[in-house]
Structures are given as C-alpha cells and as structure tokens.
C-alpha cells in the first residue's frame, strides 16, 4: 500500500477556515490527508504547535492565514510571516525537509485554492516519504 501522508492544517478562523468551508459547500474534492485545526488567527500558531504535530506523527504541517493586507486582526499574518522563517531555520537544523512545513495564504473565497494546496502538498509529501521524526525519537529513546 502506498504511503498516505498525515498533514495537520492550522487554519485561521476568518479567511482560511472559511475558505476550507467554501471548498466543502462548493463540493470541491481534495486529498483526505489533511486534518484541520482552527485557530483565531495565524499569529496564534505557536511554533510549539508545529513541533508538537511533527513530534506526534504528522508528515507535514500546513499553516494558512489571510492574505497579507487582509488579516481580520489587521496585521496578525504579518507577524506569522516574520516568525515563520525563524521556525523554518530551526526545523532545517533538526533535519526536517523544507517541504514538510508550509505557510500559505487562503482567503474566504478561495475554496478551490485551498483544495489545490492540499492536493499539491499531499503529492509532494507522498513523494518525500514519511517523516523520520518518530523513528528518530524511537531510536533516541532506545539509545538512552
């Protein structure tokens, strides 16, 4: 059986979660690999959420917020935008491939875009293979 990636999606309530709902109401089908967790704003996404998801077995993490300039809280997504590279740098140090964690903007009217993103990310991670985090953790524990 082919590898089915597990992707955790953190979506802001106002734009991206609504966009995902729109994909639903418009019956736009997409890969079933994503599990969505709603937060009020992408700026609420603590780096530890991403680490926790990877630690607990996610093969990918998708963060979605409002497009720059469209944040419900005026500027939350700009904070996310600035925090994200710091997180990515740390993830790179951990040996986590770049494609596993993505930040994308999805507006409330972009149901199709959300579906396309999920499909694209699922394909890319499927090609990349399972995350090594859990296996590495198990090895670490065994060595201890």
């Amino acid at each position: 059986m082919s590898f089915e990636p597990k992707i955790v999606g953190f979506l802001c309530n106002w734009c991206s979660y609504t966009g995902a709902d729109l994909a639903g109401t418009s019956r736009i089908h997409y890969a079933p690999n994503v599990r969505i967790i709603r937060v009020m704003c992408s700026a609420r996404i603590d780096p530890t959420f991403v680490l926790k998801a990877l630690h607990d077995g996610a093969d990918g993490v998708l963060i979605c917020g409002c497009h720059p300039g469209d944040c419900h809280y005026t500027e939350g997504n700009y904070k996310t935008m600035r925090r994200f590279p710091l997180l990515k740098r740390m993830l790179a140090d951990f040996g986590i491939e770049d494609e596993r964690v993505r930040l994308e903007w999805v507006s409330a009217s972009e149901g199709q875009r959300f579906a396309d993103l999920v499909d694209d990310m699922t394909e890319r991670i499927r090609a990349l293979g399972p995350s090594r985090v859990q296996a590495d953790l198990a090895t670490d524990m065994a060595e201890r």
């Binding site: 937060v39 704003c41 609420r44 996404i45 939350g76 904070k79």
Partner: peptide, 21 residues
C-alpha cells in the same frame, strides 16, 4: 482574541481563553 500575544510571550504567561495551548 487573535492570540498573537499568546504565541509571542516568552514566559508563556498569556492564555488565550478557549484556544489554550
């Protein structure tokens, strides 16, 4: 309730009610 401060607090002293860590 955006929670931007919650994610940024270095002491983990801010709680987002109903969206806690």
């Amino acid at each position: 309730a955006c929670g931007a401060c919650v994610a940024a607090c270095p002491s983990g002293a801010i709680k987002a009610r109903h969206f806690t860590d």
